[in-house]
Write a protein that binds this DNA or RNA. Structure first.
Lengths: 338, 338
DNA sequence: ATGAAAGCGCTAACAC
DNA sequence: GTGTTAGCGCTTTCAT
């Protein structure tokens, strides 16, 4: 297990110079630097992160906390964060809360407090005051993805605007009877995404002078099965059949798509469908959707933290960053029949 | 930032005793233990992982290397590993190689060598001799998931048997013209899963005395779109239309299902379909499949490593562990029409 | 059962 | 620009 002293000996310099040469902190002559680098290379020396962390107070490791891992959105955010971190020499330590129980408590009270990470990215998690202040007290920068965290830099998407945009697309095409399949209010813990999108839908409808009866907004659970069940229910009803469905996620939109087919309806001739996400399956189903870019969100979160952590940068991050979204028109939407 | 000395002072003992009481290593009187515990609790003291790692040589952190993250199989393995690790007080540091380029090299030569992890789980990665020996030289236990790694404990599934089982299910129902949509040989880097499954298919057919013409085995890419395209191609051909399709993954099976529908064929009346995985969407599509249990695979891998790392256990792991799989019969398979 | 003391492998003043 | 020195916060002998 080759250490810094062996490198120093081989390069004919002191350990301090090796440290300076390899870390880039402090001035080193070109000659010394070259000798250190080749010595380190020969010996396949890699700095011990523990020793370095202990001495410097920096771990070069970022904790990422997610509520789920095997959902497209979350794994994409993690993937983006991982890419950006790796590129900058940082490790990513993952905390997945999907197990429930006191996992969450132990993560925030134990795991994140043992100084293994320099900073924390919280994805779609509404942190409590205690959780936030606990982290900040340890001097750990924190950034939230997917909603505002009190007093913490957060990447947010304008959920209301996203839903308005989707709805306006349908209205522009001429639809007047539109069904919104959204998230449930019970599951609405995480930043009220469900209700925000419902609000956006209602806003767009009202602005266009269209009625928004209660039956035009139903609650589901963001899954294909949920979208299928609710769409079938609504499309099978003998009255008020919608000519378009706006689902709050692509997975629900796909479910609705399948339900329509099973009823013998053709998309988009008999029914237009729009979703949100630009899920990996959206293209296959030729789904019109409003893309959000989770991989980019993860990357951005990581970069904001890195900018804060690097001594050369030390940038104070903006408290709210607004994330981009974009309407992607494919073949699941069209003018209504008549 | 409360340290061990403050806890020691408050409990009226030495730092050494605090360390012993909290770690469980070494004898401590019941009284001292109680006082230490309450002091630590009051002060919300959590051991600094870096200092502890540096002094003890153990990090309580495991590296997990995956080739992708946003695919159902891999995120499930990671989720399982994470759960088992967290439960045992370990952190999980994630390395996702999906970026390509020299990511892989830097992970193996730099990131995994900086003593941040005690052990490594490699998921569906065929490691090179150099990568393996590099890790083992650092005294880092290694376990492979998803295929054999030379000289390393590995969790393997009998891919040939899995494919045979799926095929036999179709044969048992009376199918004789079966199409196998498998993985491509080009993408076959990772343990030849594609070819193993093709072999199992051919074995079962031959054993049953059925012909295996070249056209009955086609190569795709494990995606819904791939399954759709190939199934449509085969089902649309005027001759040799299969009465059943065995897809090497549920995602391809779902693609095949959609292709059949689009052609006006009814599943399972006109076409039986079986997949492999028990993907989260399998139930929705009522897909008959052979389940493998990726979450369990991740948990098992983590537990094998932990058994090796805990000084109280120090178990020498078996070199090959065979993973379970199970036929799950739903409604996408039935006897052929006549 | 407990404390004192010596490191673990590095970094960061501080001197020169 | 470089070396010397003093820690970083723990764990682990070694005494007692």
């Amino acid at each position: 297990m080759v250490g810094i002293n062996e490198v120093a000996r081989r390069a004919g310099v002191s350990a301090a110079t090796v440290s300076r040469a390899l870390s880039g902190n402090g001035a080193v002559s070109a000659g010394a630097r070259a000798r250190v680098e080749s010595a380190a290379n020969d010996l396949r020396y890699v700095v011990s992160s523990n020793a370095s962390s202990l001495a410097s107070g920096r771990t070069r490791n970022v904790g990422v906390v997610v509520p789920h891992l095997n959902r497209w959105f979350f794994s994409s955010v993690v993937e983006g964060a991982e890419r950006a971190l790796l590129r900058n020499g940082y490790d990513l330590t993952l905390y997945n809360l999907s197990g429930g129980g006191d996992e969450r408590r132990s993560v925030f009270e134990h795991f994140l407090r043992r100084r293994r990470v320099d900073a924390v990215i919280a994805v779609a998690l509404e942190l409590t005051e205690v959780e936030i202040s606990g982290l900040l007290a340890l001097n750990k920068p924190l950034v939230g993805v997917g909603g505002p965290l009190a007093g913490v830099p957060s990447l947010e998407i304008d959920e209301v605007a996203i839903a308005r945009l989707a709805t306006e697309h349908l209205i522009m095409l001429g639809h007047t009877t539109i069904l919104h399949i959204g998230g449930s209010s019970q599951e609405d813990t995480n930043f009220h995404i469900g209700s925000h999108r419902r609000t956006g839908f209602a806003q767009a409808m009202t602005t266009a002078g269209l009625p928004v009866p209660a039956r035009s907004m139903i609650s589901s659970n963001f899954t294909v099965a949920g979208g299928y069940a609710h769409a079938k229910q609504a499309l099978g009803h003998p009255h008020h059949r919608p000519t378009a469905i706006f689902a709050a996620s692509d997975e629900m939109a796909i479910g609705a798509h399948l339900a329509a087919r099973d009823l013998g309806l053709t998309v988009p001739q008999d029914l237009s469908i729009i979703g949100i996400d630009d899920h990996e399956l959206a293209e296959f189903f030729q789904l019109t959707t409003v893309a959000q870019f989770p991989k980019g969100q993860g990357e951005l979160a990581a970069e904001i933290l890195i900018a804060q952590l690097e001594p050369s940068r030390r940038e104070e991050p903006a408290l709210r960053v607004t994330l981009p979204f974009e309407l992607i028109v494919r073949s699941s939407t069209a003018r209504p029949r008549d």
